[in-house]
Design a protein around this nucleic acid. Structure first.
Lengths: 186, 186
DNA sequence: GTTGCCATGTAAACTGTTACATGATTTC
DNA sequence: GAAATCATGTAACAGTTTACATGGCAAC
């Protein structure tokens, strides 16, 4: 079921799940919100929409009613929803932590909407646990190798460590917020 | 002097400036250190080295002496050093902050070595100042739009804000460290 | 009747991924 | 002489950027 390796495809699916949209709507959305780091260029979005449709993850219907030029409005199919959920549920690896932090955040952002709060909380716990293992090993590596680095190189490396530490802190307070909300609802 | 838009090209220049190396050396380095998020695949590195050479930013000399298979060892030319410095000195824009954080860190990592501590400190000050302007506007945007977001989407957005706050904190302590070192040397 | 916005699309160039191919030399 | 390691490279494919092209309608 390996859809498409491009983050853009999943971002589009997630946005289309909320409500069917045209390519132009999506472009405007990306231009307005600077979400993730997706470009609003037609040369990226229209081909990506074509790919989704070829894989039958979306289906387009042409609107002429609106008076303006014809719009192609895309809806996510059942197959598309399944592929999207499979993406959200992928196991979290250390490699994701190191090389695909953006993708993890994108997945999490859509999780509440699509899988519910419990799954979102479980994801945060997994994320935190993985960081708890990774950060010490990264620090050990830094200590071992940074001795003869120029100062700015060492500081840049430390920045990387601190980013992960900020991520861990964020995950913990986020878990607490989910639990708090759950407590209030009962 | 617009070299090459690929970060990899600049990363290679920076590493070659420290000491001339072969493609294989560079691959091993990327494999061992997971620096930035550069791949150690030959399909990325050898073509990138070819590009640098075509632009006369590096020059290769073939070694046969080592006994093994011939190595192509790359040296940065004067032109290459100039292009590299121009890259390091590019003005820092808000767009860099939002979309090219990795590139800024890579530039900073090489700064001490190539431009000296004073320029590196100046860069940190610019970075901090730009963040001081950007973070409040990002928070205002978050407050305005997050009201009707699902919780996980709002949290993902907050993560983005907190990453920038961690960056600001990092920049301030890094400036202090440069100043401290300068004080000690005098 | 020209400017501007809505809305779609395409073509060329560049970069990176994956996977394969090759040649030489040391080690067992 | 088989396997491992050193070292270089290429071919096919996917995705993005940039820039251009087009067409209809609205407003002035």
């Amino acid at each position: 079921m390996k859809t498409n390796d491009s983050l853009l495809g999943f971002a589009l699916l997630g946005l289309l799940l909320e409500k069917p949209k045209s390519g132009y709507d999506l472009r405007k959305f990306f231009a307005a919100t600077a979400m993730g780091s997706f470009s609003d260029s037609p040369g990226a979005i229209y081909p990506a929409l074509d790919r989704l449709e070829r894989q039958k993850l979306t289906r387009a219907t042409v609107e002429t009613s609106t008076g303006l030029r014809k719009r192609r409005v895309f809806k996510v199919t059942a197959r598309g929803l399944a592929a999207f959920k499979a993406w959200l549920r992928r196991p979290l690896t250390r490699d994701d932590l190191i090389h695909r932090g953006d993708e993890l955040m994108l997945r999490f952002a859509f999780m509440d909407q699509t899988l519910g709060a419990d799954q979102a909380t479980a994801f945060l716990r997994e994320y935190a646990r993985e960081l708890e293992g990774y950060i010490p090993s990264l620090k050990a590596y830094l200590d071992a190798t940074s001795v003869n680095m120029p100062m700015s190189a060492r500081l840049a490396f430390e920045f990387g460590v601190q980013e992960h530490e900020a991520g861990l802190k964020w995950a913990r307070t986020s878990i607490a917020r989910y639990e708090q909300r759950k407590g209030n609802q009962e």
